[in-house]
Design a protein around this nucleic acid. Sequence first.
DNA 1: AGGAGACCGGACAGAAAAGGTCCTGTTGAA
DNA 2: TTCAACAGGACCTTTTCTGTCCGGTCTCCT
Lengths: 138, 138
Amino acid sequence: MGLQLTRGGEYAVRAMTYLARFPEGHVASLRDIGRAQDIPESFLAKILQSLVRSGLAVSQRGAHGGFALARPAAGVTMRDIIEAVDGPIALNQCVLWPEDCSRSGDCELHKAWQRAQAQLMDVLDSVTLRTLAPQPVA
Amino acid sequence: MGLQLTRGGEYAVRAMTYLARFPEGHVASLRDIGRAQDIPESFLAKILQSLVRSGLAVSQRGAHGGFALARPAAGVTMRDIIEAVDGPIALNQCVLWPEDCSRSGDCELHKAWQRAQAQLMDVLDSVTLRTLAPQPVA
DNA sequence: AGGAGACCGGACAGAAAAGGTCCTGTTGAA
DNA sequence: TTCAACAGGACCTTTTCTGTCCGGTCTCCT
Ligand code: SF4
Ligand code: SF4
């Protein structure tokens, strides 16, 4: 393989999409999210921690605690979520860190990867949680 | 990380691009390619084997042997090369094997990944070895 | 005040993939 | 015949992925 989304990334988007289905501010517990989205709960705990640390979600501790979106669904993109849990997206190392490759100065391949990355980001930046969960349930 | 080209994929494109810089049919040895492109030779051996098995390169055994492109440079794309060594490209599992995910029937996220994949393939299919190595050296 | 419910944080661990290495065999041209 | 060069497979090390576990902490509810 190679060049594929991690399980963690997929889970993160699914979890956030689930939260976006509720009215703004609604809190759902780890257990609820895991059950609803078929995500192992102890793994999901780690993923949600990343999302909280990245400021995409907020957590409520104690009884009746859980997680909620930190901002309106329309303002959170697929890219935001994936980068929060998997780190920066770079189809090839040199796209984000050109200094790592001595050839990057005049490399046609480099330019190709930059175009590919730009096209990918176009999609990832344009899809928000509102796109993924259009109608909040009452 | 996650979602990044493998080292093997990068090496493969570099090796093929090197071959494309010579007149059609020119044979270069493993050693030559490895030295010119800074690729560990024993690893490169494996990569070239994959390329030969996939029909993108041909090999010549015995003294003065080596590797050459199997077809004109303009007919070999980035995608061909990467898929030959890393297997099929799928930004998310469900893009190529939707039956693996029970949700794939009506999943907005799935559609998003399909768009992203299509954009990526547009670039990868449009870049050929002729693009990467415009002028064969005499 | 005292549970009980729920997240926090870090250590740990098994499995898989990435990234190579090595060795023995086979080929083919000089 | 010799020897340069590829073929193929076994093996190895390191890193990343995909989780698990547990003690600690916080907060609501009674
Ligand atoms: S694409 Fe070019 S610049 Fe980027 S890593 Fe490969 S050789 Fe270096
Ligand atoms: S994007 Fe949708 S279809 Fe694809 S794996 Fe995730 S949930 Fe399944």
